[in-house]
Design a protein around this nucleic acid. Sequence first.
DNA 1: GTATAATACATCGGAACACGATGTATCGAT
DNA 2: ATCGATACATCGTGTTCCGATGTATTATAC
Lengths: 110, 110
Amino acid sequence: MALSQELARGTVMPIVLALLNEQPMYGYELVKTVNDRTNGVLQFKEGTLYPLLHKMQSQRLIKAQWETAEDTGKQRKYYHITSKGEKLLTESKTQWQQLSEAVNVLLALG
Amino acid sequence: MALSQELARGTVMPIVLALLNEQPMYGYELVKTVNDRTNGVLQFKEGTLYPLLHKMQSQRLIKAQWETAEDTGKQRKYYHITSKGEKLLTESKTQWQQLSEAVNVLLALG
DNA sequence: GTATAATACATCGGAACACGATGTATCGAT
DNA sequence: ATCGATACATCGTGTTCCGATGTATTATAC
């Protein structure tokens, strides 16, 4: 996860929900997007993401759909968020804000 | 940890370091202090904290000292931070800020 | 043209962390 | 005399994440 510590634990699912809330994406795309947007601070691993996507699918937070890329002809599994996933995303955002505030106070960061 | 999710994983050690950097404290006091200062958003559990304190002591991040409370006469194990702990605290704060920034971007929270 | 890197999916075992349950002991309040 | 709070502790379990490993295709480099 690039951060040497295990600080980022628990953030993966909320981040996946947030990205899929913007637009449907496939797994490999999620990995690259997170890496790009955070300048490598967060780096999803495939060994983390693929099992998580399957789990989220079984929990009906997301749905999957195979598509063939127009350019490359490769098979891609696109995921899109469900209404149940949207609800969890909203809750997760609130929880993250609460956690963030609490940790900032305790670490004396304002 | 009060937050229903496992979002707060990895924050316990940095928080302990930050509090002990203010002043020496004993375990039970750390539990109550975190609960108070975050209005219950974060709640350290004794089953989490005591083993962690032992581990941090073995890593020479903190040192322990038994003292007898003047008021109650109870035995309390006071922990204070070491210079090695201070260094880790500095790094942990930076890591937290990086993580916080990255997650805020991805969750579209500014 | 053939090797290598990138794309794109997947599984599995292990490690780290946090927690609930449980235990001991003391002290103050009811 | 009982109960809750204080104050320490251990241990097994569950969750999450990761590295290693595997398959297959496509684009790039030599």
